[in-house]
Design a protein around this nucleic acid. Structure first.
Lengths: 198, 198
DNA sequence: CCGCTACTATGACAGCGGTCATAGTCGGCC
DNA sequence: GGCCGACTATGACCGCTGTCATAGTAGCGG
């Protein structure tokens, strides 16, 4: 298994993110995380003395870094860089997963937000940081494509908002249509923000 | 209290929605719902023999009807009907709540989606129905404003997606900026979809 | 008064949650 | 070897959850 390359601690964080995005924070048990990661239960309190909250926070932070890191790879995969293409690639990751693996899972950051925004301020801050770690690279990518810096941040917020909402609706309806719809409708707006370099 | 006008059953459904949108489905206990509604605990199994799932489903359905019903009132409150105005009114409801009551609560439909989409197919269908009961009136309102019927549904999906995502980010960051940003960036796109009646 | 239905009121139960406590194992290093 | 730190392994604890069972009350038609 490729997972063996990663240490047990990393695997547990990864597994926590996986289970959280499927079942939510409340329904994800520590024992489940250990079992899913193939890690001993005793390691939980060893690596995460802060308990469940620490594990959740690290899972959220990991998800944020992962999402932010994907942006660069999406950019590299575009034939002709355009904001709409980036957005389409971001959404395509989800449509692909839903079409091949089903609609079981959503975004772990969204799950943590819903379950921990009211209680647990530490987790709330972790979620905010995750969104920031995601929005940053998106905004940078937009500026790199010719979007004025003043608007890049706003459009990044819009892109992530629309994507998160579409993920929710897609899971609810068990249909990727919300994702494709959002990509189609938002694409022209995004491309129109590029200042023509002609 | 005005709540006394409603029967205890209705109050419990309402309270369930309130607690779910604040703490999530998993963290909301049946006893909490009864206490919040000022209803006797024994009434739970009387009115909701289907247990927690039935209560959650009805709370979600109520939220969907509520959101759909608000659309008409938003429309009536607009000086000059425009898609951007409707969207701004939808978002303003949230910014107002967040600015006056804090960022404790989110959308109950989103919470139910996150917590029950993987398990509990009945709840998943209830969530899908709630989104539909929300999207329908929005799409109708758009057509009434001159948006071609073919695009109204798509734009309604986009509006709700962006709004839900912005709600998530606003709660995470404890700032209404995502909501205002989404309204500002999406407004022109929405108004541009109106076929000129000149 | 009886019987019936709607609703209320408690208590108990089984299960699972996160967390603590304790003991065991392994591997390196003086 | 002997020690020590890192990690593993279990078991127990307490609190909470949803649900069931049972008993009780209020109102009403006969």
């Amino acid at each position: 298994m490729a997972e063996s390359r990663h240490g047990p601690r990393e695997r547990m964080v990864f597994s926590a993110a996986q289970l959280i995005r499927r079942d939510g924070v409340g329904a994800t048990g520590m024992r489940d995380v250990a079992a899913h990661a193939g890690a001993p239960r005793g390691s939980l309190q060893h690596y995460f003395p802060g308990g469940k909250e620490q594990l959740v926070n690290e899972a959220v932070a990991w998800a944020g870094r992962y999402a932010g890191g994907r942006v660069a790879r999406f950019l590299a995969g575009l034939d002709e860089p355009a904001p709409s293409g980036l957005f389409a690639a971001m959404a395509a990751q989800w449509t692909h997963e839903y079409e091949t693996d089903g609609f079981a899972a959503g975004c772990p950051v969204a799950a943590a937000t819903v379950d921990c925004a009211a209680t647990g301020s530490a987790t709330r801050e972790a979620v905010a940081a995750a969104f920031s770690a995601w929005r940053g690279p998106v905004a940078e990518a937009l500026t790199g494509m010719g979007v004025p810096a003043a608007r890049a941040g706003s459009l990044a917020t819009l892109m992530i908002s629309a994507l998160e909402g579409a993920i929710l609706m897609a899971r609810a309806e068990q249909d990727v249509r919300p994702l494709t719809t959002v990509v189609r409708e938002l694409g022209p707006l995004l491309d129109a923000a590029v200042v023509s370099s002609v």
